[in-house]
Design a protein around this nucleic acid. Sequence first.
DNA 1: GTCAATTACGTTCTCCGTAAGGATG
DNA 2: CATCCTTACGGAGAACGTAATTGAC
Lengths: 307, 307
Amino acid sequence: MNANISTRLLYAFIALDDLKHFTRAAERCHTSQSAFSVMIQKLEAAVGAKLFERDTRNVTLTPEGELFAEVARSLVSEIESAFDDMSDYVARRRGRVSVAALPSLAANGLPAVIAEYKKLYPGVAVTLYDALSDQCLSLLRQGKVDLVLTAPGANFLEFDSKTLCSDPFYVVCRRDHPLAKKRIVHVNKLAGHEIIHLAKSSSVRQHVDILLRDVQTVHSGFEVEHLATVAGLVEQGLGITLVPELTLFQFRQLDLVAIPLDAKDLMRPILIAKRKGQSLSIAAQAMLELIEKQIGPTGSRRKYQNV
Amino acid sequence: MNANISTRLLYAFIALDDLKHFTRAAERCHTSQSAFSVMIQKLEAAVGAKLFERDTRNVTLTPEGELFAEVARSLVSEIESAFDDMSDYVARRRGRVSVAALPSLAANGLPAVIAEYKKLYPGVAVTLYDALSDQCLSLLRQGKVDLVLTAPGANFLEFDSKTLCSDPFYVVCRRDHPLAKKRIVHVNKLAGHEIIHLAKSSSVRQHVDILLRDVQTVHSGFEVEHLATVAGLVEQGLGITLVPELTLFQFRQLDLVAIPLDAKDLMRPILIAKRKGQSLSIAAQAMLELIEKQIGPTGSRRKYQNV
DNA sequence: GTCAATTACGTTCTCCGTAAGGATG
DNA sequence: CATCCTTACGGAGAACGTAATTGAC
């Protein structure tokens, strides 16, 4: 008794059980009647028992056939539902994607992408974490998220990553500030100005420090955690600040001006990362592709220029 | 996505999931590694998704692969248990046989057969009905029993039947009866004797009437239902009786003598019958064969001669 | 350079369909 | 004699194994 059954045999059996007629059952199975006859014989050999009592007139189940009929029908339905299930995942009718992103990206670029994604694949559950870079990467390491959008820190070799876009820096100041009228500001022009900083741990600050390495600016004494705080401080005229484009939304509503910084070579790269050597689920792959398409390397400056 | 999967593919998948190594998994599946590689590709095509992430060093499941792993393992275990189940039936380790028989056969020949059967196939449940011929056949018609052991009545063409043995008639009388000393009695010698009869509806009586068609016997006036009653009456010297060999056990214990009747051509045939055009279960087939072997046409006279 | 999966390719074998055979009512 | 399952047989396609190739460490 060799249990190497294919689903075709099970379908053949069920067809014959339903129709009790070789010729018609063969038709249902899209095969010739002789081939069908052989298939039934094969199945009987595999099972080790005669399953149908047949002469040229009648086809009936043997007692073992009746037993097998239950088995076969339940197996087929299990197989079908299993495959339907798989097919749902493959077709992204079901599934799950988890993305972690820096708050700036989570608030700014991603919602549109996620909205589009949900429109395309309404059955897929999308989870979004907004967290600082380290936390994002920790989530990725733990397998809690499929994708991470962040600015590069140390140890990026641990992951498969790809630059999505480069986030250029802007000077943000009050409308009545001397710089406010400029169309573009060179880094050197920042000398002597009071700068409101973010905390040293932030990735933005690290870039700013590099930008201002050779410029003699004045430290305002403020090192705050949140951009909203920075915005408040700037609005009160306590200084100006340097932030990447993707965070400019934090300064909207206020009477502030954002001026592109002329330091094209020193932009904050935005990376998308996934676990190394581990492939993405089909749902996650689709998310990755959509993110790459929508937050590609092109066109981001234009979009967010007006604060 | 074509769901025509064979169990071999599932086993291949599971082997690779277990071993994470094509070469070793191929060995477990008794196939070459190249064939195995193709099998996995086939499975992936059938499922419609890449199931393993592999390079020459590492083999890991993709997210879809993990999903499929659950599916595959559960399917395989279902298939295996289903086939094991069938195989139990085929090997008569499990099953059910129901037999209906005339009380004389149920009490006499069958218990030994059933005991032997239970010894051979302890897992098969055996049910025995002892009933009169009509009831037996009714049970068979309803499908409540697989086999019937009875003496032929009308309408036996309705069933597939086969003569098992012929049940010769005996004269039963008291030890002090004139016939008691005979080694064999010819029908003619019964003339003038008082006969205790069974009811007209019994198959035994119908045969007796034929036997005695041309013999002038005296009717004792008794027409009773049960052989035990006949036995009691005979023991009290109220007459003699004619019964087939298989009922003689009813007269044991009593001080009676059974003498073979010299009427070889007029024996009660015992038939075994099953439903027409419906094959027996494997368990029932085995029972039929055992019955034929043990209650065959030979040797029955010897066995029951001494009352 | 070695180990391991994939691809190439020729052989074998299985499977299918046409057609003949045989049984049944 | 008509129906319809089984068997026979030849060809097409699939699967397999050997061996060459590619790729990773």
